[in-house]
Simulated assay, not measured.
Amino acid sequence: MKFEIVRDELLDALNDVMKAISSKVAIPILTGIKIEVNENGMSMTGSDSDITIRTFIPVERDGKELIKISEQGSIVLQARVFSEIIRKLPTNEVKINVTDGLLTLIHSGKSEFKLIGSNPDEYPILPEVKDEHSFSLPADLMKSIIRETVFAVSQQETRPILTGVHWTVEEGKLSCVATDSHRLARKLASPENMPTIPFSFVIPGKSLQELNKILPDSDSPVKIIIAEQQVLFKTDHVLFYSRLLEGNYPDTSRLIPTESKTSVTVNGRALLQSIDRASLLAKEDRNNIVRFSTEDKMIEISSNSPEIGKVEELVEAIQITGEELKISFSAKYMMDALRAIDGQDIEIQFTGAMRPFILKSADDDSILQLILPVRTY
């Protein structure tokens, strides 16, 4: 295998592939990246068994030559070492030449590295994903779905199914739900050309977080192909495979209240900043509790820690209807929910001091956050 490549292009593709590389893998060869060169261009594959990422660099793009191929072939190189070498090469021209079986020469400017590669035939083959169910979403919608849901997945492996986001396609609509039993995040969307046959699947939260780093900030389409145990996300030059979580996701629809006794409309950013300040004096334990009470069109945010001190702050509400209320909740959960709704005017609907309450944008019904209160009053 022998070729020349533009370093910047190689580095961009390498940065994507490295997101699938882990030092904690059962198969030693998976600490490496598989490089393949043919007449069409160069592909690189990285995997940790749960996630597999494959990038492709064409021979030319928009009339500009990116790769000059002298000899086709393939090799597996140690991912961390190869990545650091490419990152620190002195020029934008890189020559890679595999000689004597597995010895790989990397040449740039006056620098030359010699790496000992591994047999590419020992690298696991890509998962086979048959087109059982597929649809496309714009990349920017995908990123907002991930941002507005994935933070609410469970971090505990005691119920593995809750470490993922539940995607459901029904009647041409997409619903994405995450919950850790203490809070819930839901995003609804109605993209074009959705399948008419209903189906659902659960994608690990960690996979979605890595996918989010790769997706472009544009409306370019991402094709999503679902098979029995795998999902494949396809963009122009990246294939992102993830395993799916097995098991039945709990029915979360019954958790969402359909009526409320108290409704508060408030500027989301102002409320977020107030709760952030109050959390400074909240106890540094798991709950990090802040109190919230409604009186005379004002919201009182307070927190009390006997060892540290007390804080009280008033936030002006846009509107408060229904019964007066005092309720306590985790500051962290509330701030995560407010950040997901992202500074818009929000509506908070309460059904009682010890009942789950929901937050949603005052202008957009597609985002819903639910939080369970904490008993302190």
Rank of each mutant, 00 (worst) to 15 (best):
R291Y: 12
K213F: 10
T91R: 09
P58M: 02
I358R: 03
S22T: 08
E170V: 03
I145D: 02
F292H: 05
R61E: 11
L11C: 10
Q156L: 13
A13C: 15
I29N: 02
R277K: 13
D365I: 09
P198L: 02
F3E: 12
D363L: 13
G32F: 10
P221N: 00
A227M: 07
D276Q: 12
V17K: 06
S207D: 06
V37M: 04
F3P: 14
G172P: 09
I35V: 05
G268I: 07
G205I: 08
M354N: 15
E148D: 08
F56P: 03
D121V: 10
K130T: 06
I85H: 12
G309H: 11
D48N: 12
G109N: 08
I289A: 15
D276H: 11
I75L: 08
T163I: 04
V94Q: 04
I145T: 00
D336Q: 08
P373Q: 03
D236K: 13
G164C: 07
T149Y: 14
S366N: 13
V266W: 10
Q72M: 09
E122W: 13
L30C: 04
S181G: 13
S83A: 15
R286I: 05
M42S: 00
D131P: 06
S154Q: 04
G46N: 04
L208G: 01
A337D: 08
G101N: 14
